[in-house]
Amino acid sequence: QKTCLICGDEASGCHYGALTCGSCKVFFKRAAEGKQKYLCASRNDCTIDKFRRKNCPSCRLRKCYEAGMTLGARKL
């Protein structure tokens, strides 16, 4: 079983350049394409896991970029 690099849930494949679950794939697409700016209410070090991935979109998006996700990457 492969694990999502963002939240640790079961990965569905390589999306936008990183091994992710469906939830993180859709989140990244919407967040990266959108005009909304996300700000962390804490210290930009929130725990992003399967159960808390929706708590801080700022840290989740940062983790996506750190994992190498880009909109230009093709699905592998």
Rank of each mutant, 00 (worst) to 15 (best):
D45T: 09
C40Q: 03
C21E: 02
G22K: 08
A32E: 14
G8D: 14
H15A: 07
K63M: 08
T47I: 12
L71S: 11
C7W: 01
K25Y: 11
L39A: 11
S12V: 12
L5I: 11
S58L: 05
C46Q: 01
Q1N: 11
G17A: 03
Q1S: 11
D45I: 10
S23N: 08
R30I: 10
I6M: 01
K35N: 09
L71K: 14
C14L: 13
G22V: 07
D45P: 05
Y16A: 03
G17E: 05
F27V: 01
Q1H: 03
D45N: 13
R30A: 09
L19S: 08
G22C: 10
C21Y: 01
Y65F: 11
P57Y: 12
D49N: 06
N44D: 13
A41D: 14
D45L: 06
L71Q: 11
C4F: 00
S23V: 02
R74L: 06
K63Y: 02
T20H: 04
T3E: 07
R74E: 15
G8Q: 03
L5N: 11
C21I: 01
L19K: 12
E33W: 05
T20P: 02
C64L: 02
N44S: 10
N44R: 05
K37S: 09
C40D: 00
T20F: 15
Y16Q: 03
L5R: 08
D9A: 09
Y65D: 06
R30H: 15
G8T: 04
S58F: 05
Y38Q: 10
T3A: 09
L39F: 11
V26M: 14
C21H: 02
K25S: 14
H15Y: 05
R52A: 07
E33K: 13
F27R: 00
G8F: 03
K29L: 04
C4W: 00
P57S: 11
C4K: 01
G17N: 10
D9W: 04
Q36E: 14
G22F: 04
Y65G: 05
A31E: 09
Y38S: 08
N55T: 13
C7Y: 02
S58W: 03
S12A: 11
C64G: 02
I6L: 01
I48S: 05
K50F: 04
D49Y: 02
N44E: 12
K35H: 11
C46H: 04
G22W: 12
A41G: 09
R74W: 06
Y16K: 03
K29G: 11
C21T: 01
K25R: 10
C40Y: 00
N55F: 08
L19W: 14
K37G: 09
E33L: 06
C14I: 15
C40R: 01
Q1R: 05
A32Y: 07
G17D: 03
N55D: 14
A32W: 09
T47L: 11
Q36R: 07
C56H: 01
T3S: 11
C7P: 02
C21L: 00
Y16P: 03
S58E: 15
E33I: 14
L19I: 12
Y16H: 04
Q36P: 13
G13F: 05
L5D: 10
R52V: 14
N44P: 03
Q36V: 15
I6R: 03
L71G: 08
G13C: 04
S23H: 12
D49P: 03
S23E: 12
G72N: 08
T3C: 14
R30K: 15
P57D: 15
I48G: 04
G8E: 11
K29A: 11
F27S: 00
S12R: 10
C21F: 00
C64P: 01
D49E: 10
V26K: 15
D9C: 11
C24W: 00
K35L: 08
D9V: 06
C24Q: 00
A41K: 04
R52I: 11
C14A: 13
V26H: 14
C56M: 02
R74D: 11
C56L: 03
K29M: 05
C4H: 01
H15D: 06
G13T: 11
I6T: 05
V26E: 14
C64R: 00
C56F: 00
A73M: 06
N55V: 07
E33D: 10
K29V: 05
C46G: 00
L19R: 13
A32T: 15
L71R: 05
C46N: 02
A41P: 08
A18I: 15
R30S: 12
A18R: 05
D9H: 15
N44Q: 11
K37H: 15
A31H: 08
L5V: 07
N55K: 14
Y65L: 09
L5A: 08
R52N: 10
R30L: 15
A32K: 06
G72W: 10
